[in-house]
Design a protein around this nucleic acid. Structure first.
Lengths: 211, 211
DNA sequence: GTGGCGATGTATCGGACCGATACATCGCAC
DNA sequence: GTGCGATGTATCGGTCCGATACATCGCCAC
């Protein structure tokens, strides 16, 4: 999952670790707290070894930083062509891990770079998974209620509520997706490169107005 | 977290691994999918090594199973006195990990075995944490909105909604807790032992009626 | 009666991710 | 000029997951 997220973010602009973490937190703040450096740096190393990202040697054309000679400054990474391929492959493939909380969140966060058929497939898979969880909770609340204490039951009720709410949310998104009114808009362009932009060209974007 | 959950469940009745997993799934189904055996068995081993649980040698008094001689049948574990102490200590101590999603869920699931002051402390800590997450999401939705695509924004909105809802839920629980109308009821007694029950004796239990 | 098959049951291994920790540099307020 | 908070890179031990393997039991079809 981290791999996918890093590749996705580096597709928008080259970045160093610290920055990456901040962007990751901003983009995925709704689903996970904050990525740990203990995961981030080893993953960067792994991606580099695989040839999917490289160190961008801090183009010293603009007089910005006063030429850090001795190394051990920030290390900026950028995605490679192979990395873009890898990203496309990861984003299009939907295995079981695509539908758990974290996996779905990460995939969803990059829906602007995902084609519509895949978006639909993922939304429906997620819905199915949440429906199963919901049924499980209903079973427990129905059949095993007397075996459990009041606090545990309250927890289940709250969870059930969250499931029902998420299913409704997904239904909405699926309906939007099918009718072509998908909420795809700016994509915030790939800074620092040619205008090479492989973002999807979906139909008229706009949602119900929201203040 | 797993350690706490296992100790808590074994306090209700001796069990073997498979059974433990099922109970765990029933009790924690609202917060996590299903515990993996790859976590469960090593943890059981660890708890046994620490002396907090022991193998309950399958009391062959009732003519139930036809005497499995060769071993390699089910291994039933039961909690020890030291284990109960450990559980009490874990349940009362509230560190940072107590307030993340999983940690809070597990603690909450054993609130029937937690004293009221600790319950209140944990609920308030959780509320604070969720409020912080909420503020983070509001910031992103306010300040960085134009940098993000429509899907990412939608994800944040959904997350924000979930935060607001959880805060309201926690407010309710805190109010109930303070007014003494805590939803503590049966506790489903410790089967298979003397009537030694160290459950809290809280005041009148009852919630708003629910069908 | 036997052969298969799904539920029950125990166990290990590699890998992903986290939390704590360490340490170095930069900008700036005092 | 110096202390201190933000920026920045890095490692280590530990928890947990997912895949996999394998053994037993009850039961139904043939």
């Amino acid at each position: 999952m981290l791999e996918l997220a890093i590749l996705g973010l580096l597709q928008e602009a080259p970045m160093h670790g610290y920055e990456l973490r901040k962007e990751l937190t901003a983009k995925l703040g709704a689903i996970r707290a904050a990525i740990s450096y203990g995961s981030l740096y080893p993953t960067l190393r792994r991606l580099q070894a695989a040839g999917w990202i490289t160190e961008a040697n801090e183009t010293p054309d603009v007089s910005d930083v006063p030429a850090l000679t001795s190394r051990r400054g920030r290390v900026v990474y950028k995605i490679t062509a192979e990395g873009k391929e890898r990203f496309a492959q990861l984003i299009a493939h939907a295995g079981p891990e695509t539908y758990d909380d974290t996996g779905f969140g990460v995939h969803f966060a990059f829906f602007a770079r995902t084609d519509q058929a895949t978006r639909l497939r993922i939304l429906e898979g997620r819905r199915r998974k949440i429906e199963e969880r919901r049924e499980g909770l209903r079973d427990v609340l129905g059949r095993a209620a007397e075996r459990l204490d009041a606090y545990t039951l309250e927890l289940q009720r709250h969870g059930l509520d969250a499931c029902e709410r998420e299913v409704r949310w997904l239904e909405e998104l699926i309906a939007n997706e099918r009718s072509g009114r998908a909420p795809t808009a700016p994509i915030t362009g790939a800074a620092g490169g040619q205008p090479e932009d492989n973002s999807p060209p979906p139909p008229g974007a706009s949602r119900e107005e929201r203040p």
